[in-house]
Simulated assay, not measured.
Amino acid sequence: MVLPLINRIEAIYYPVLACVGVPVNLAAIVILSQGKCGLSGCVTRYLVGMAAADLLVVLSNPVLKWTREFHFQDSFLSITPVCRLLTVAEFAAIFTSVWLTVTFTLDRFVAICCEKFKRKYCTERTAAVAIGIVSVLGCAESAPWFFLFEHVYIINNVPWHCVPSETFLHSIAWGAFEMSHFMLTACTPFVFILLLNIMTASRVLSASKVRRALRGRRDGENVEDAELKNRKRSVILLFCISGSFILLWGTYVGHRFYVRISGNYVYTSTSDPSFIAEHASRMLQILSTCTNTCIYVVTQRKFRAELLRVVTYPSKAILKLCK
């Protein structure tokens, strides 16, 4: 059977994404955990948590789901109970990754816009508690997915593969659950991040104007404003991370809304624009798990230095042994 073009692209795309996503997220975890990137303790914890969640998404989605689906269809991972567990793990990892992006955005909003509250909120302890709560909620929210799938066929009393059950497809209660899952993992975080970024940008612009005006009144002052520079660095990191999330999830959210509003749940063919849009939006959504490390490389000088040290360490060690 010849696969449609979009599926042939996916069959190559997901293994490549897995080969990139696993090492870059592992590198981010190792480098950030050392605390040598010039970031505050709470920011470091959030970034490590986000990298760990992204790594779990890469393992559960491109590796164990789509690479298996396209290249290893008859492996033990396709046994129905295992397939159900992998689905729960996938949704829990995506929920955690998304909401850690929200909590990080909220932390930076408080740090920049709420001077009186930031000393109590922007701490390593608060970051650890937030990461723990988000992780537990992700597991709890995703657990019902285990019961929404059934086997395709049974061979030697072993059920194989997972498809949505008839109960799920025709139940109002399960339909409401699916809609609430979409709202919690895509729509609500998307709106929160967008609004927090707008408020943060507005605050930064107004504060920068005031500081420049005050410094301009001081005769002969040429000293660089260190606070403004640090705030600018923090804002760039925030906007790059949350901005990439908005761009890469925007197509997915838009397509899901289109399907809900139009009621177009059945595709006429594999060349149906809605079918292609669904698969393309899914690829962009999962790509968001690999972008944060690239953002750190571009925006954080010390992270670049640490990454270069990690990458060149094996070759230096081999040269040292040869001498």
Rank of each mutant, 00 (worst) to 15 (best):
R309C: 14
V259E: 03
F149G: 13
M179A: 14
F245W: 06
V191N: 02
V98E: 02
F190H: 10
I295W: 03
I286L: 12
A213G: 08
L85W: 09
V102M: 00
L319E: 06
S60L: 06
P144R: 10
A51S: 13
C42T: 11
T185N: 13
L5V: 13
H255Y: 06
S165N: 04
W99Y: 12
S202L: 15
V158L: 06
K232D: 11
L228K: 11
L26P: 08
P62E: 06
A226S: 09
G216M: 03
G254A: 11
V311F: 09
V204F: 14
R108E: 07
R45S: 05
S288E: 04
T185K: 11
L64I: 05
I133V: 15
G21V: 02
P189R: 05
L85F: 09
F72H: 12
A51K: 01
F190M: 12
T291R: 00
I318Y: 08
K232A: 14
N197Y: 04
E166A: 14
A11T: 00
R84A: 03
L195H: 06
S78G: 10
S78L: 04
S315G: 05
S271D: 14
H279L: 13
C122T: 05
F168N: 10
V58C: 03
T293G: 01
Y121I: 14
T101M: 12
A127F: 04
G220I: 01
R108Q: 04
H255K: 08
A280N: 04
R301A: 13
A213W: 04
M183G: 10
V110Y: 09
R119E: 13
C294K: 02
E221I: 10
S78N: 08
L55Y: 00
L59Q: 00
L228G: 15
G38D: 01
L308G: 11
H71M: 10
A277I: 00
R212M: 10
N25Y: 07
K316Q: 12
F70Y: 13
P4Y: 06
W66G: 07
P144S: 09
F91D: 07
S78F: 01
L32P: 04
L228A: 14
M1L: 10
G41R: 07
L195P: 05
A226R: 11
A53K: 02
Y121V: 15
G132N: 02
C42I: 08
Q34I: 08
V298I: 14
L17S: 04
F190I: 05
S208V: 08
A51L: 02
V266F: 12
G250H: 06
R217W: 09
S244D: 09
G138K: 07
I286T: 13
T291S: 02
H181W: 15
A128I: 04
T123A: 05
L321Q: 13
I6M: 07
L47Y: 02
L148S: 07
T188D: 07
L59W: 01
C113M: 00
P144A: 08
A140G: 05
H255M: 09
A143V: 00
I155K: 15
L284P: 07
V310Y: 15
F117I: 15
E278N: 09
T299H: 11
L56T: 00
H161M: 11
N25H: 03
R68W: 03
S202I: 13
L106S: 02
R304V: 06
S180E: 12
F245L: 01
L169Q: 11
S75W: 09
I276L: 08
A18T: 14
S171Q: 04
E306R: 03
A140R: 02
V223K: 15
I193T: 00
L248T: 02
V152L: 14
C83Y: 10
H161K: 13
